[in-house]
Design a protein around this nucleic acid. Structure first.
Lengths: 215, 215
DNA sequence: GCGTTGTCAACTGTCGACAGTTGGCAGTTT
DNA sequence: AAACTGCCAACTGTCGACAGTTGACAACGC
């Protein structure tokens, strides 16, 4: 028997709402009506309120007193500010990964990169799924649960800002190269280089998002 | 007219509870009884539950399904893990501060250091208040609101783990020296050195906390 | 005596209803 | 016509009560 991840209605509501916000099913700028959504989910307002507050603490909703909860819409400045935090966290994670990684970690990282290459040669664009997988594997190798958790939250907010999933081929290629270079640095246990490459990588991704937002 | 910072009962409850948790008025390991605390605060369980959930999201309470909310007690491993996150954030902040600081920022940093020295010469121990002020001024100079917010949250959790406010003179002296050196690096705009010194500083503070916890 | 099972009180999870606030609209005034 | 004022509907903030679960204690069997 698989025990449900969240027994409580509030927990389930968090999962459902998070999904709807991240996929854009609830579009940026729109308001979350408590009674309406509660009815739609088949629960009462109490648990739903808790779910809304939880998502607000994750930055996926903004609360306005007596007005309700809104899905924040993308602001270019916000992207930059968010990437400052993400860079701080992921560079540190890259350093830690370089000094703590096991051989199994290395195999996993290489596997993700290999799959990206196969995907690319097959003419497919670089799926965001594999990019997420790479960064997540990196975080596992860093073995710092708190940093990993914070990165998860930041990445979520980044996803929220990704108005359009970009398929720019040059960006795809550059990202894969960055990933490969990161794996090499981690393999060598070269923390300084891992941090440097990660910084360059994220700076590139950030710039790419900024330009795609301003269009 | 000063508009109240929190009109809602939930917001007020958050402030009161946070204070009580951080000061140890609600001791680590103890449970927060919803009905009891709600009566004591003169509010209903609804807003109190939201407050509890909020503090849990800040890491000041841990939630156990069907059991309630507990104040987490200090675990040495937790200190180490927490300082990994704090180091990642504050080193990045130090780098940013070194490259973005204004002259006014510099004056403020020097003023905090000077006050620490005056305090020290007067035979007073290094008050935690001034240490907090220093790091906060540093964060202001970094001008990265997201990093600053995360540091605030982590520092809160660190305070929660400070079972006893230590007055070790040697530690006091070393910390003041670290702060001075940080200010110099920031003054020179030397991001790399600022990061290095901050890392050493936090590593020292962490070690000091670990030993004081194991006693 | 020790482990097991049944019972129970306490507490959390959830719900429906009431009160207070907000933004918008119609009516009025100049 | 523009601005102001008063009202109104919709929604959030809050409350008290009910239902389900948990851990503990007591009674029982071995």
């Amino acid at each position: 028997m698989t025990p449900p991840l969240h027994l409580s209605l509030a927990g389930q509501a968090v999962d459902v709402l998070r999904e709807q916000v991240l996929t854009g099913e609830i579009p940026p700028g729109s308001r979350v009506n408590e009674v309406e959504v509660a009815q739609k989910l088949g629960i009462s307002r109490g648990p739903l309120r808790e779910a809304i507050r939880h998502l607000a603490s994750e930055g996926l909703l903004t609360l306005v007193p007596h007005r309700g909860a809104f899905v924040p819409d993308a602001a270019p400045d916000e992207v930059k500010a968010l990437f400052e935090l993400r860079t701080a966290l992921e560079c540190a994670a890259a350093e830690l990964a370089a000094s703590r990684r096991t051989d199994l970690d290395l195999v996993r990282l290489q596997e993700v990169c290999a799959e990206s290459r196969r995907n690319y040669r097959a003419g497919q664009p670089f799926p965001y799924r594999l990019d997420l997988a790479f960064h997540r594997t990196m975080l596992d190798a860093a073995r710092s649960p708190h940093i990993a958790e914070q990165v998860r939250l930041v990445q979520q907010r980044v996803v929220l800002l990704r108005s359009a999933l970009e398929d720019d081929p040059s960006h795809t290629h550059a990202s894969m190269d960055d990933h490969d270079e990161l794996v090499m640095a981690v393999a060598d246990g070269d923390a300084a280089r891992a941090s440097t490459v990660m910084r360059r990588h994220l700076s590139r991704v950030c710039a790419q998002m900024m330009t795609s937002l301003n269009r």
